[in-house]
Design a protein around this nucleic acid. Structure first.
Length: 881
DNA sequence: ACCGCCGGGTGCC
DNA sequence: ACCGCCGGGTGCC
């Protein structure tokens, strides 16, 4: 019901991935998460084109008009011919079949994935029984011969078109008045000068810029919204409400006579295509997407009328808070406040409820913000659909005003066969918060999201195109932007031509995005005025000189490290012994912070032959060392930050998914990617997490300071002396360092709180609330681990940031600073980075800079090999080798 | 006539 | 399908 296509349309258009996967494709796909073993809109060359015929038109209802694109779908189980190739129009309705003689070679080509075949019907239907179709064969160059040979063998050849000029996706329909293939293709030649990679990158980067035009009208929020909106939020509210109430045809649809025609595919239908009532709100972090969305919920129930207006009149005199119930529900892995506001009105039988789906990390933020911004006299019912006790009655859910849940819960419910109440409700509105997290088309989560039924659909995201064009498809599918909700059409009309540099398709993409997206950055301006006036941000580097004692210790460790790494470099085994190398670097970084950080971690040499239990212990201590209590090391397979880190018996650290994939694909022959030792899944040791017991170590042992600690304390005392109201963030990657810092902070009488990744949701919420509080007794310092908290983390109470140690990842540092340099900040933000002179920290700073430049130049397109090589170079630099 | 020719029935894969 | 193909009816001029 919810899928307008019917299952046949969608499922048939999606090739079954279990069919005909070649070995090389399997290997390729194993390196990329969820990659599909087909051509899937990727680049490829056009082998040629020919005319074929579609027969059996009179048996089917699907219609096609002049120059319309059609899709060709294999029907291997057709009882009359196992070579059958079905022809369908853009909506997936069957038009006919390819004539059997031609279907035979086409089936072979399609089944063996030698080419992707696309069709355009040049004249439309001229009789009841058959029509011609122009077929385009796209594929990898290496398969060209196989395709041509097969066709020739069956008595077909490509039409004799000179040269290789027909580069793109069929025809530029509007410009192709001619009827012959030759003529149509030569028209296309005119537009076929592709963009260079650099031009493409530029246009792509700019796509989300400058989306401000005509989006400056404002709308006041309903009275029920307690917080006054800022001007840019009123603009967003106006825009969102206008999108929800719009009566326009979706992008690229035009009315022509009694037909609605999609000008990109030339597909025409009698029935008006569904309106797209929603879009993407892609404002920068901190501009108030949550508040704006709440305002939308309250202000545009139907036709621009606020939610619950009549009820407010009725019950306006009721005391504030009477209908508010706070229910405390203990959950399995963490505690969270479940807030239920009762008293919803069930008179409105049409869709009334808004469903909000967000990552777990921002769930409590939504609840807080509803509480903060909405007057509760309004009787708003917000139901948190989370936890084992959640109410699974879809009738109950549909009577709420707002249902809030997480992607994981949605996805888990969806996997539970018939029993997903979220999928039984016809929602007024569905909001995907941090919507860019949905991007893998094959993930259960994506399917669960796409299968929701709703009139209005919104995506909130601070990072609209995080990775690439590829990730956009899911968003288009969610917004139901026909025909792009079917992947073939997205690939054919947008993704492939844009990837190959087609200007017109890029323009189309830009127009598409522009029509449905609102994006403002912190620096966006409306009529010369900044959207948000943020205080200034200043960054200083404070160089720290090690004491003589520390320097000795450092130099000793460095000489020792040089010996070891020097040997690896000469042997060419740096990557083989990567864990050791990282351990040495971490050790040096730790000495820069505080010599006591080294702790009692035992060194593990690779050739160790201890008893298994002992080995286990040693491995755990090694993985601890590598991760150094919360630092951001990379996995040698994906070269990304470690996720679910595990250590092998040969003492190398990887992401669990990465190394498991290696083991899965190589089976018994699996070898460690770094040292080629045999590995298997049973011998992976997990990182048990930091089990340190807070202050116990610092309590027992005699306190010892360090140069960096002294430098920090000096600054903190100075800040306190200048203005005791100023609060500071003290940031480190090493949570053990944060623990060490607690002692001198206490000694100097500072009140402080702490936030790191090991804390549960309850204590996080508590720590943040305490810190944000402005009373004089509230903590003036927060010890913060670099990567703690989601993007939504709001620490605007602080205006000083002390970065205790440099990170490999400059983005992580920026993000951390943005937690206080955001909307709501009233003071200038001053950031101090402590860097130890003549140390690995200086090298890291330099490398960070180089990296940033390189990224900008190359569009991040360095191969994994290159990245590894430059990593080796970096290590050599740092060790002065 | 073990042909030619005529004209009706018929028609995707 | 204003086709091709099939197969039954038919058969000097």
């Amino acid at each position: 019901m919810r899928r307008r296509f019917g299952t046949a349309g969608l499922d048939l258009l999606d090739t079954d991935p279990s069919e005909s996967v070649t070995l090389s494709q399997a290997v390729q796909s194993s390196t990329e998460e969820g990659a599909r073993p087909d051509l899937d809109g990727e680049a490829g060359v056009l082998f040629g084109a020919m005319t074929g015929s579609v027969v059996g038109l009179r048996y089917y209802t699907g219609v096609v008009n002049k120059r319309e694109m059609v899709s060709l779908v294999r029907e291997p189980h057709n009882p009359y011919d196992r070579n059958a190739v079905m022809v369908a129009n853009v909506y997936g309705n069957q038009v006919g079949h390819i004539k059997k003689e031609l279907a035979a070679p086409m089936a072979y080509i399609m089944d063996n994935n030698l080419a992707k075949i696309e069709g355009v019907v040049p004249y439309g239907k001229t009789n009841k029984f058959s029509m011609s179709v122009t077929l385009f064969f796209w594929g990898e160059e290496e398969n060209r011969a196989a395709v041509t040979t097969k066709l020739n063998h069956c008595g077909f050849r490509f039409d004799p078109v000179k040269g290789t000029f027909f580069l793109f996706h069929g025809f530029k329909s509007a410009k192709a008045p001619g009827s012959s293939l030759q003529e149509m293709l030569s028209k296309n030649l005119v537009a076929a000068v592709p963009l260079t990679a650099e031009q493409m990158k530029n246009s792509f980067d700019k796509m989300f810029d400058d989306l401000m035009a005509d989006k400056t009208r404002e709308m006041e929020a309903a009275d029920a919204v307690f917080t006054p909106l800022l001007p840019h939020q009123k603009q967003a509210l106006y825009w969102m409400a206008a999108r929800e109430n719009n009566d326009h045809l979706p992008p690229f649809w035009e009315q022509k006579g009694d037909l609605y025609v999609n000008v990109l595919t030339n597909f025409g239908v009698k029935q008006r295509p569904e309106r797209v009532l929603g879009g993407i709100l892609a404002d920068d972090m901190g501009l108030g997407k949550t508040l704006t969305t709440i305002a939308l919920i309250m202000s545009n129930f139907h036709d621009g009328r606020p939610l619950l207006l009549d009820k407010a009149d009725q019950k306006g005199s009721e005391p504030y808070g009477l209908n508010r119930h706070l229910v405390f529900t203990p959950l399995s892995d963490m505690d969270i406040f479940t807030t239920v506001f009762l008293g919803a009105d069930s008179r409105i039988s049409t869709a009334r409820a808004t469903l909000i789906i967000c990552p777990l990390s921002v769930l409590s933020n939504w609840l807080d913000q509803f509480e903060q911004h909405v007057r509760f006299g309004e009787n708003l019912s917000v139901y948190l659909y989370y936890g084992t006790e959640r109410c699974r009655d879809h009738n109950f859910l549909s009577r709420q005003d707002v249902v809030l849940t997480t992607y994981n819960v949605l996805s888990a419910d969806y996997g539970n066969k018939e029993s997903s109440p979220l999928h039984k409700v016809s929602w007024l509105r569905v909001v995907l918060d941090e919507g860019h997290v949905v991007r893998n088309p094959n993930a259960q989560q994506t399917k669960a999201v796409l299968d929701l039924s709703s009139e209005r659909r919104w995506i909130l995201s601070g990072t609209p195109i995080q990775n690439s064009l590829k990730d956009l498809w899911v968003l288009m599918a969610f917004l139901k932007l026909k025909p792009f909700d079917v992947k073939e059409w997205w690939n054919r009309v947008i993704q492939r031509p844009v990837t190959q540099g087609d200007r017109e398709s890029l323009k189309n993409l830009q127009a598409l995005i522009k029509g449905i997206t609102l994006r403002r950055t912190k620096t966006s301006k409306v009529a010369g005025k900044s959207v948000v006036e943020l205080p200034q941000k200043k960054m200083f580097v404070q160089r720290v000189t090690l004491s003589e004692e520390e320097r000795q210790e450092y130099d000793l460790a460095k000489t020792e490290g040089q010996k070891v790494i020097g040997r690896y470099v000469t042997e060419g085994t740096v990557l083989t012994n990567y864990a050791d190398v990282l351990a040495i670097l971490v050790r040096l970084r730790q000495i820069c912070c505080h010599p006591g950080l080294l702790g009692s971690y035992a060194r593990v040499s690779s050739g160790d032959t201890s008893a298994p239990s002992d080995l286990q212990e040693r491995l755990i201590s090694k993985i601890r060392l590598v991760l150094s209590c919360g630092s951001d090391e990379e996995c040698a397979i994906c070269l990304d930050s470690l996720r679910q880190p595990v250590i092998t018996y040969c003492a190398h650290v990887f992401c669990r998914p990465c190394i498991c994939e290696v083991i899965r694909s190589e089976q018994e022959r699996a070898k460690c990617p770094l040292c080629r030792a045999h590995i298997n899944t049973k011998e992976l040791v997990e990182y048990p997490g930091d089990k340190e017991t807070g202050t116990s170590t610092s309590g027992k042992e005699k306190w010892r300071s360090s140069s960096k600690v002294d430098a920090l304390m000096g600054r903190l005392l100075q800040v306190h002396g200048e203005d005791p109201a100023v609060k500071s963030l003290v940031v480190s990657q090493f949570t053990r360092f944060l623990t060490l810092l607690e002692t001198p902070l206490r000694q100097h009488g500072f009140t402080f709180t702490r936030l790191d990744g090991s804390m549960n949701q309850r204590s996080r919420v508590k720590a943040i609330a305490e810190f944000q509080d402005s009373s004089p007794s509230s903590p003036s310092i927060m010890l913060l681990s670099l990567t703690a908290g989601g993007v939504g983390l709001n620490l605007t109470a602080a205006s000083r940031v002390f970065m205790m140690d440099p990170s490999w990842n400059p983005a992580a540092e920026d993000q951390c600073v943005d937690r206080c340099h955001r909307l709501g900040q009233t003071r200038d933000v001053i950031i101090t980075k402590f860097i130890v002179k003549n140390s690995v920290e200086e090298d890291m700073m330099r490398i960070q800079l180089n990296k940033k430049e390189l990224m900008e130049k190359t569009f991040g397109s360095k191969s994994v090999q290159d990245q590894r090589q430059s990593r080796i170079e970096e290590i050599k630099t740092m060790m002065a080798l």
